[in-house]
Amino acid sequence: MMAHWLNAIWQRPYLLLWLPPAFWAGNLVLGRSLADTMPPVTLAVGRWVVALAVLLPFVLRMLWRQRALLWQQRWLILLCGTFGIAGYNALAYVALRTVPAVNVAFLNSTLPLMIPVAAFVLTRETVPYRTALGIAVSFLGISWIVSRGEMQALLTLRFERADLLVLLAILNYALYSVLLRRRPAALDPLAFLAATMIAGLLVLLPFWLWELADGAVLPFDAASLSAVLYIGIFASLLAFILWNRCVAMLGAAVTGVSFHLVAVFTAILAFALLGEPVHGFHAVGIALILAGFGLATLPARKMRRVS
């Protein structure tokens, strides 16, 4: 019964779309809390070491069985590992050390805008009108929250050089999301994910060694290790499995709009865990985000099924 229930959900990506943003909201909260104690590249390496350690026992045989196909796709794997595993995470953690939270929230929400552009440039994939409208409405909701209900306040936002790191990180993830569509159907998705994790860790290795040589101190307290375990299992492994599944079934543009839900779940976590108040502009912004998400994903119900 449980297996049947899980399989039914697995075949409905419009339900799965809600989970990665929830996991990433936790990652955002923890990433900010660790900004002063955990070196950024170390945190990026730690999360993927944890994720790979959990995943490997389940895919080792498949990795060996599909080694020839994996080698054929080595450049795709390297690009996905560079952009999605290494670049996005390391740059995001470096940015969180200096970039104000309001700027991070606003800049992160450019991902659904970047993905259709990247998809068109790389694959000539066009975006349905309803999806484009949903992206615009949800981005309006993000803007309403960031401006605290006063849109003219966006004109006074100041962006520093470090903000470019956030945009560069988001561009990395947009490219990763589009490149995922090039994975051959014969290549097992979990084996592909494990291979991209390994590639990403190899890309991160020289930067991590440089960080350690520069005097970075690794925290080993229970709180830091627990945070890394959460980020590695939920915000890395499970979130990426679900995100990749949704991209395979719905396309990068439709899946990308769900990234705006990170703001919704972050607000919920901040209220529940930190006691931060919820104001009227939060309610309006969240309503716009959910309306845009609904507009963008309604056509997804008619998309093809992928086994």
Results as ranks from 00 to 15, higher is better:
Ile286Asp: 08
Leu164Arg: 04
Leu171Asn: 00
Asn7Asp: 14
Leu91Glu: 06
Leu16Val: 14
Ala300Gly: 15
Val166Cys: 01
Leu91Trp: 04
Gly215Pro: 05
Ala252Ile: 01
Ala300Asn: 00
Glu211Arg: 08
Val166Ser: 00
Leu60Pro: 00
Leu30Arg: 11
Ala44Lys: 01
Gly84Ser: 02
Arg305Gly: 10
Val284Ala: 15
Ala239Pro: 02
Arg130Phe: 11
Leu43Pro: 01
Leu202Cys: 08
Ala169Val: 07
Leu295Thr: 00
Gly280Trp: 15
Ile77Tyr: 01
Leu155His: 13
Leu60Glu: 07
Leu295Tyr: 08
Ala213Glu: 07
Leu30Lys: 10
Leu107Asp: 06
Trp18Glu: 04
Ile9Phe: 05
Trp10Leu: 03
Tyr14His: 13
Arg124Met: 05
Leu288Asn: 05
Leu187Thr: 11
Leu171Pro: 01
Tyr129Met: 13
Val178Met: 09
Val49Trp: 10
His260Tyr: 06
Ile241Leu: 01
Leu76Asn: 01
Gly200Leu: 00
Gly232Ile: 06
Gly81Ala: 01
Asn172Glu: 02
Ser33Leu: 15
Leu19Met: 10
Trp5Phe: 14
Trp210Val: 06
Ala195Arg: 09
Leu229Trp: 10
Ala8Lys: 12
Ala291Phe: 14
Leu111Ile: 14
Met1Asn: 12
Gly46Val: 07
Pro39Trp: 05
Pro100Val: 06
Leu55Ser: 05
Gly84His: 06
Ser224Phe: 03
Trp210Ala: 15
Leu107Arg: 10
Leu15Phe: 15
Leu76Gly: 00
Ala248Gln: 15
Pro277Arg: 10
Gly84Phe: 09
Ala51His: 04
Ser224Lys: 01
Leu16Phe: 06
Leu193Asn: 07
Ala227Lys: 09
Gly275Trp: 03
Gln72Asn: 11
Ala296Lys: 02
Ser177Cys: 02
Glu211Trp: 05
Ala136Trp: 04
Val94Asp: 06
Met151Ile: 14
Leu113Gln: 08
Leu122Trp: 15
Phe139Met: 00
Phe293Val: 11
Leu204Ser: 11
Gly215Lys: 05
Pro39Ser: 01
Gly46Cys: 02
Leu155Phe: 12
Pro116Asn: 05
Phe220Met: 10
Val262Thr: 14
Trp71Ile: 11
Pro299Ile: 02
Leu242Ile: 13
Phe234Arg: 03
Leu6Ala: 13
Asp221His: 06
Tyr173Leu: 02
Tyr14Ile: 12
Ala185Gly: 10
Gln66Pro: 10
Pro57Arg: 03
Leu165Ile: 01
Ala22Ser: 11
Ala191Glu: 03
Leu111Ser: 10
Arg74Thr: 05
Ile289Lys: 12
Ala199Gln: 13
His260Asp: 07
Val94Phe: 15
Leu70Ile: 09
Glu125Ala: 14
Ile85Ser: 03
Pro219Leu: 07
Val228Ser: 00
Ala283Leu: 15
Ala169Thr: 08
Leu261Val: 08
Glu125Phe: 01
Leu212His: 01
Leu171Gln: 00
Asp188Asn: 13
Phe83Ser: 04
Tyr173His: 02
Leu250Ala: 12
Leu60Thr: 08
Thr196Trp: 13
Val203Asn: 00
Val217Asp: 12
Leu154Lys: 08
Ala22Glu: 09
